[in-house]
Write a protein that binds this DNA or RNA. Structure first.
Length: 421
DNA sequence: TCTGGGGTCCTAGGACCC
DNA sequence: TCTGGGGTCCTAGGACCC
């Protein structure tokens, strides 16, 4: 039996922790550059603002003056997420965090009534201690637990925020009421294709012969089908020990045409990627850099490209990563185009204990590791990017627009205090 | 005027080998 | 001119997720 805990309207709920005046209002949190809606309060959902809605299109759904729009503050959300997860870990074993706002776990207690009581208390405790509303769904598979969680969230008054989807008859009824596009693992494309075959609900889908699902689509979709039947297929790869790729990319605040300005961004992305590799005790075997124009600007010629280079020796050293990223960048840069986005990705990641030193590699790895540790320490103590590679000094041209940051003085003080606790 | 960032898995097809 | 069968590895791209 799987449990799924999911924070309700997470980013909006975080903002509300620090400013209760946001309660009861239409609130949305915007992505980098204040581009799209990435979180909505129930009030905003009720107004019909869809997930991913570009900020400038909010007016197509409701009066934008009634909508409080906030720039995302991911450090704050991460902090509150950690608090929620810590409380959960006190009560359940095998907590598998799936994203910043949700986690799976295995039922802690055989007896359903006892479990329900413990879980309902947990929901209350998280609300009291962290201020974040959460819902919990239980079912025999993760895909069904997702559905159970939605019900827990939707019918909060009836469910106490905890819902069990266990009895086969109950599962059958719920599947008949679940639209095919609402099933976890079935996105826009697959839903459209299934619908064209007359499959409109999860119950229709479950009745398809599994062999047909596999031959028409894929093993992935067949697993989703089996999960809906109540068989655990280990979807969501719960034991993700380490990342297989690490990417840093940003959309620039404006279109850039200057090579140095884009190179500056690349170096910053490389620094961040290398830092994350070190935080995870990992090294990358390859580095990929990509650049892209602005595909919304039909008036400009569009160009996009990427280049992946293999390192002689897997590394997490900032200078090595940055050098490689720049080398790849030089391979793909073309004058005369406008650039709107770029990124640096680390691939072929392995744990740094398994590192194969290349005997021809002139770098002294011990020396570099000590240098990197020192830089990380200083940046931890004095703030991000206190020490950075030289090209990063130019930072600014590519920086994102964030004009809706919540900076009420009380909130800011509280926020700072919380983060450094 | 203004459209995010960071991941995972699977599959098809090409290169290459015997 | 005719030109097998089976396997592995790698990569690009598509689909999905939050």
């Amino acid at each position: 039996m799987y449990g799924l805990v999911d924070c309700n309207n997470f980013f909006v709920s975080c903002e509300r922790v620090f400013d209760p005046r946001l309660n009861g209002k239409m609130v949305v949190v915007l992505s980098n550059n204040d581009g799209c809606v990435i979180a909505r309060s129930n009030e905003a959902k009720a107004a019909g603002i869809p997930m991913g809605c570009p900020a400038f299109k909010i007016k197509e759904h409701t009066d934008p003056r009634q909508v409080i729009q906030l720039s995302a503050r991911h450090i704050l959300y991460r902090d509150l997420s950690d608090r929620v997860m810590n409380i959960l870990m006190q009560e359940v074993e095998n907590l598998q965090q799936y994203s910043v706002d949700e986690a799976f776990f295995v039922l802690p207690h055989e007896d359903v009534e006892t479990s329900h009581r413990i879980m309902a208390e947990l929901v209350t405790r998280i609300r009291q201690y962290v201020g974040i509303p959460v819902s919990i769904g239980f079912a025999p598979s993760r895909t069904l637990a997702k559905i159970a969680n939605h019900i827990a969230k939707r019918d909060r008054r009836i469910t106490d925020g905890v819902y069990w989807l266990v009895r086969p008859e109950a599962i059958d009824i719920i599947l008949r009421r679940t639209a095919i596009e609402d099933v976890w693992g079935i996105g826009r494309r697959l839903a459209a294709s299934l619908k064209s075959r007359g499959i409109k609900t999860a119950a229709d889908f479950v009745r398809m012969p599994p062999s047909l699902v596999r031959s028409l689509y894929s093993v992935t979709l067949e697993r989703t089908q089996r999960e809906l039947m109540g068989h655990d297929c280990q979807i969501a790869n719960p034991v993700t020990i380490a990342h297989k790729t690490i990417m840093t990319s940003r959309t620039f605040g404006k279109v850039l045409t200057d090579r140095d300005a884009v190179a500056d961004a690349i170096v910053s992305f490389a620094e961040r990627t290398a830092r994350q590799l070190r935080d995870e005790n990992s090294v990358a075997g390859s580095i990929m850099t990509y650049v892209r124009g602005d595909y919304f600007r039909k008036d400009l010629p569009f160009y996009s490209n990427s280049c992946q280079l293999r390192l002689d020796t897997p590394s997490s050293d900032t200078m090595t990563i940055a050098r490689m990223a720049l080398k790849a960048f030089n391979n793909i840069w073309k004058d005369g185009f406008g650039y709107r986005k770029a990124g640096v990705m680390a691939l072929d990641i392995q744990h740094n204990s398994g590192i194969q030193l290349n005997v021809f590699d002139p770098d002294d790895h011990g020396k570099f590791r000590r240098l990197m540790t020192s830089i990380d320490d200083i940046n931890n103590k004095y703030g991000k990017r206190s020490i950075k590679l030289a090209p990063g000094v130019l930072r600014g041209e590519w920086a994102a627009n964030q004009s809706h940051l919540h900076t009420g003085s009380k909130t800011l003080l509280f926020f700072t205090g919380m983060v450094h606790l």
